[in-house]
Amino acid sequence: MTTATLTADHGHTHGAGGAATPEHQPHHTTLGLDHRKIAIWAFIGSECMLFISLISTYLIYKGKSLVGPYPHEKWTDPNTGETFNAILNIPVTSASTFVLLMSSLAMVLAHNAVINRTGKAKWWLLTTILLGTGFLGFQAYEFTSFVHEGLTIKTNLFGSSFFTLTGFHGAHVTVGVLWLCTLLAIDLKRGLKPEDGLIVDLSALYWHFVDVVWIAIFTLVYLIP
């Protein structure tokens, strides 16, 4: 992997001749911001609509499942007499939420370390990655234990909308972890410098966004019965 520069795909504002206008800045932009910064904000805006649609569907289907298990209350199967516990495990998910929140803190410290050249960037990046992976571990545990308790994606409307929503979020966390691993690899290879602040900033924006989405999911899906 050639990690000399992580060059994103951005062109120049205009094609003024370098010789004719020596004062010409090759990367001059209208707002003075890097293109990638604007693109990621547009991307995040678009992602908001994605999660709004997923969360709305979950809420629309809340209480509409014809059979259990249910998220917040016990259910007895009238055919078999078998009883199923309320599915959601608030204490465990509170712990995983805490882990994800802490990963955002570590991300801030990683960005800070890059900007201020403290040399600790790799440790904070590693911490963020481990906390993110920890969150994914919690989710894997959660999913398998739900399946054990009798809830799959096919069981009822709750199962379909719950697994799809949280699965989509988990996929976003996975992408974020891969992105951070890439940054860590670059840091180990050549060291992230203050000029690389932007590429760290981009991943941080994405990471915080995914975190905020989780706060919304945790509140609307887990906490409100």
């Binding site: 289907y61 509409k64 096919k154 009822n156 409307l157 379909s160």
Partner: peptide, 10 residues
């Protein structure tokens, strides 16, 4: 999944 399965209450 059951998103559009009326029999499942969709």
């Amino acid at each position: 999944t059951n998103f559009y399965t009326i029999a499942a209450g969709a």
